[in-house]
Amino acid sequence: MISVMFMEDHNMEFFDYLFEDAAPGDLILVYGPPKVGKSIFCYQFLYSSLVGGEPCLYIVADYGSRQLEQRMMEFNWFLRPYIQNGDVYIIDLLTRLAGVKVEDSGTLKFSSVQNLTDLMVKVGVSTRSLFRKSSKFRAILDSLTVIFAFNPPNLVLRLLKAYKARISEARGIGVVVHTTGTVEPSIENSLMELADLKLCFDGEKIQAESSAGEKFVQYTITDKGVKNIRG
């Protein structure tokens, strides 16, 4: 089971409930329509990981690494100290595309949404670095939308298989975010088949589905992130 209970006063017990069937090495697919809190969930997952002493890899594909920090600050989740400590490893796929001249630094690497080979090189380097830091770590890819937009869908599926194998081999927990309706149904089905645990966000409830069965919780988004609405 993966614990996200490190953050106090955040009404997070329901996360543990959703994750109780997940284990190290698993790939979790977070999916749903736009604007239902998928990325906020990822920030929360990232931050709880760091607060709990587990390092984390975060791949930002839809916006830049600076925006990641800014967006998390809106919830009072400050990433900077963890970046400085090398506890979070960020791969930024968009900033260079926007024409910004940026250099790689210790744990902040830049790649391109079209260069999936290079992305996997950086995933390999980061998993090595995180594994050496801690035998438990998490890896989040937020999200597939832009990657699908600029690559053949089959190639993206190949990337995901390699990504899953790499994270799984190192016994990390992988999270991948997907916005429904952005690819053909057949590709979406293949995505679902790759995941060990699927979390479907619809704006009101999170439906969890794994080999152990299905369950759901009601949720809302507050200034403290994704919050359970107790029934």
Binding site: T117, V121, G124
Partner: peptide, 9 residues
């Protein structure tokens, strides 16, 4: 010919 994850460009 490289497996994914190898820096070979």
């Amino acid at each position: 010919s490289a497996v994914p994850g190898v820096d070979y460009e």
